[in-house]
């Protein structure tokens, strides 16, 4: 392949969607997303919203853990910051949702920067522990700072609103969550077309060499923390609007592990993987619920086993993917695509 010198052709070459087939598929996908709420029943709509929120948070964690190589056990805590911000603002200010969500993201990003600060001196697993400490402190604050967070009882909130419109139903929320998810994934994709994304990956692959080649490690690690927790904050804010209540138990440590699992199962350092992982991990408990419901007539004890079964499946997915398919669902997806592009005719 020899690319001409015309500036135009580099632009085309650097585009996210390069072939017309890709463009058509993407347009079809967007159209399907638009159509979905009109054909889906209440349950599917509810799931669609959950997946959307999970996609945003997973994409954020993927930026930090998958692309920058910094494990975070604090994702749920950052989501909590976003969730409480939205809940507090909606109770005390009446601001419309775009503003509250933005503030939720920004506050979470600020907390993320604070948590990332030890990366000045420690790295790798020590940093992961720092994020764990952060999630302990955040949980403590959510539970104890009663005047702001409502203590163990939490806060309940009014539906999201904008220009006199309120978004009370899942149908309405879908039109906030899903467009935001699409936008935020595209924005993340953009980051990895530029110097900042390259810096993140360089830090993950070889931090010392990256520094010698001109990358200010602290600056970019903090930026990755900020970006990742911004995504978490927005996701947490949407979570609050969606369930209309936040409590300290809304954002447990197991939720952080859920998002780590989504990143791993989907494919670390792969945005498409993050989306697949988020959807897959969100739908597994639901699939298990269906299975349990189907089994209950024959095994009345089945419901008791559901929650431990879920723990086992989550754990087994993490271990299994890391050992057998470290590139996650994204790799499986590519393999399937390759298969279809070779058969029965190419393109």
């Amino acid at each position: 392949m020899r690319i001409g010198d015309a500036k135009q052709s580099y632009e085309a070459d650097e585009a996210i969607l390069t072939s017309s087939t890709q463009k058509i598929w993407f347009a079809l996908f967007l159209f399907a997303l638009l159509l979905f709420p009109f054909v889906a029943d209440a349950y599917l709509l509810y799931l669609g919203c959950l997946v959307g929120i999970a996609v945003i948070s997973t994409t954020g964690l993927n930026i930090l853990t998958g692309f920058t190589g910094l494990i975070s056990l604090g994702q749920a805590g950052f989501m909590g910051v976003g969730g409480y911000t939205v809940a507090w603002l909606s109770a005390n200010t009446g601001l419309p949702f775009p503003v509250t969500l933005l503030l939720a993201g920004l506050l979470a990003a600020a907390v993320g920067i604070l948590v990332g600060l030890p990366s000045l001196r420690v790295k790798g697993l020590y940093l992961a522990i720092a994020t764990l400490a952060a999630s302990v402190f955040l949980h403590f604050i959510f539970a104890e700072w009663e005047s702001v967070t409502g203590g163990m009882g939490g806060l309940s909130l009014e539906p999201a609103h904008l220009f006199g419109l309120t978004f009370q139903s899942d149908f309405g929320m879908y039109f906030i969550i899903v467009p935001l998810a699409v936008l935020m994934v595209l924005a993340a994709k953009n980051v990895f077309r530029t110097r900042i994304g390259r810096a993140f990956i360089a830090i993950r692959d070889r931090d010392i060499s990256a520094e010698i080649l001109g990358i200010n490690l602290l600056h970019y690690k903090l930026m990755s923390f900020a970006l990742s927790s911004f995504y978490a904050g927005v996701a947490g804010g949407l979570f609050a609007y969606f369930f209309r209540v936040v409590t300290p138990e809304s954002f447990p440590l197991s939720m952080s592990i859920f998002y780590l699992a989504a990143v791993i199962v989907g494919g670390m350092g792969n945005l498409l993987g993050g989306i697949l992982g988020a959807a897959f991990m969100t739908l597994i408990p639901e699939a298990l619920k269906l299975l349990t419901a189907a089994l209950t007539p024959f095994y009345p004890n089945a419901p008791i086993f559901m929650s431990p079964m879920l723990e086992i499946i989550f754990g087994a997915l993490i271990v299994g993917f890391l050992i057998f398919e470290p590139h996650g669902l994204a790799e499986i997806w590519h393999r399937i695509r390759r298969f279809f592009s070779l058969w029965p005719f190419k393109n």
Binding site: A187, N190, V191, T194, R195, I196, L213, G214
Partner: peptide, 18 residues
Amino acid sequence: KLGAHVHMKSGLLGSLAY
């Protein structure tokens, strides 16, 4: 392209929006 990093200026917002 990573080598050119130090001579580039664009910030996070520009990056997100490309």
